[in-house]
Simulated scan of single mutants.
Amino acid sequence: MNTHRRALLMYARRIGFPEPVVFFDNGPSSREARPSLENLLQRVVLGQFGVVLIPGPFVFSIDDLAAHSVVEHLRRAGCRVMELPRPTRRIPRQRNPSRSA
């Protein structure tokens, strides 16, 4: 979780956003009440946030359909949902084998 927080903070700074407000429900399953998520959804509906920056939709639920449902709810409320860019794996350059006769 701290890794995600650091990545969000660094990315927000890089793109010129203010320091992110973190909404964190640790422990409850996707079927239980998640007060921080409810708080986020209410604040988006009230227009207090126009962008939600996330590592990925999995933060809303381990169930892909439920997670994407939250993303769509946020978008319908007029919020832009931005995912952190995915790290790219650098492929080492290969040297051309020397040709010998």
Results as ranks from 00 to 15, higher is better:
residue 20 P to E: 05
residue 73 H to G: 01
residue 51 V to H: 05
residue 15 I to T: 11
residue 99 R to V: 13
residue 36 S to T: 05
residue 14 R to Y: 10
residue 76 R to K: 08
residue 60 F to G: 02
residue 66 A to T: 15
residue 63 D to A: 12
residue 19 E to Q: 09
residue 39 N to R: 15
residue 40 L to E: 00
residue 70 V to Y: 08
residue 84 L to F: 11
residue 96 N to G: 03
residue 85 P to N: 11
residue 59 V to Y: 07
residue 86 R to M: 09
residue 71 V to K: 01
residue 46 L to F: 12
residue 62 I to K: 13
residue 61 S to D: 12
residue 39 N to G: 05
residue 74 L to M: 13
residue 100 S to A: 03
residue 18 P to R: 10
residue 20 P to W: 06
residue 56 G to L: 00
residue 51 V to T: 14
residue 24 F to G: 05
residue 11 Y to S: 07
residue 79 C to M: 05
residue 30 S to T: 12
residue 85 P to F: 10
residue 33 A to Y: 04
residue 13 R to H: 07
residue 58 F to R: 09
residue 44 V to R: 03
residue 37 L to Q: 11
residue 62 I to N: 13
residue 18 P to I: 06
residue 50 G to S: 13
residue 56 G to F: 02
residue 8 L to H: 13
residue 49 F to W: 10
residue 74 L to E: 01
residue 16 G to A: 06
residue 92 P to S: 13
residue 19 E to F: 04
residue 95 R to Q: 15
residue 24 F to S: 14
residue 35 P to T: 03
residue 42 Q to T: 12
residue 71 V to R: 00
residue 96 N to P: 00
residue 21 V to G: 00
residue 72 E to C: 06
residue 69 S to A: 11
residue 97 P to Y: 07
residue 9 L to F: 03
residue 68 H to V: 02
residue 39 N to F: 06
residue 2 N to E: 15
residue 16 G to N: 05
residue 38 E to H: 06
residue 61 S to Q: 08
residue 37 L to E: 05
residue 48 Q to K: 11
residue 89 R to Q: 07
residue 44 V to Y: 02
residue 100 S to M: 02
residue 101 A to I: 04
residue 20 P to H: 06
residue 79 C to R: 02
residue 90 R to G: 04
residue 29 S to M: 07
residue 17 F to R: 12
residue 98 S to T: 13
residue 53 L to V: 13
residue 34 R to D: 02
residue 59 V to L: 03
residue 22 V to P: 00
residue 37 L to S: 05
residue 78 G to Y: 03
residue 64 D to V: 03
residue 53 L to H: 07
residue 13 R to L: 12
residue 11 Y to T: 06
residue 10 M to N: 15
